[in-house]
Design a protein around this nucleic acid. Structure first.
Length: 123
DNA sequence: ACGATGACGTTAT
DNA sequence: TATAACGCCATCG
């Protein structure tokens, strides 16, 4: 049997898998930005794709989508979401994240990706 | 195959 | 500092 293309693609796209896997690696009380996750996957400008991947994920998923916010440290959600506008904020607060107004201090809560997960050469 | 969409990011005004 | 428009690329119909 050739398993070259038979029963070898249960997942719609490995790209999403990578995104989900990375998001799951975010520890509680920490947050990451879409651009950050995208950059870790080598998708420097694909922040939108990351958001789109999480969009397809459901509220019952194993993905802590709640820990993913935009570069402004704010919560992004679409009108098509579950309906709870403050749901994500509440979930983060329960993890120990403090909101300054409607914004989070990324300088303090930004998740620091381990070098094992991805390589980042900064200067 | 093409067009429209989208949970963003960045730059310009 | 806030608002607006553009770009970026994968996914969906």
């Amino acid at each position: 049997m050739d398993l070259s293309k038979s029963a070898a693609a249960p997942q719609p796209s490995p790209l999403y898998e990578s995104i989900y896997a990375l998001v799951q690696q975010i520890p509680a009380g920490r947050v990451a930005t879409y651009g950050q996750i995208a950059a870790l996957l080598g998708l420097y400008r694909h922040a939108r794709v990351v958001g789109y991947a999480l969009f397809r994920v459901g509220p019952e998923s194993d993905i802590p989508w709640q820990r993913v916010v935009n570069a402004q440290g704010k919560i992004s959600q679409s009108p098509l979401r579950y309906g709870s506008d403050d749901l994500q904020r509440v979930l983060l607060e329960q993890e120990g994240v403090v909101f300054q107004g409607d914004q989070i201090d990324l300088n303090q809560y930004r998740w620091q990706p381990p070098p094992s997960t991805a390589q980042f050469c900064e200067e």
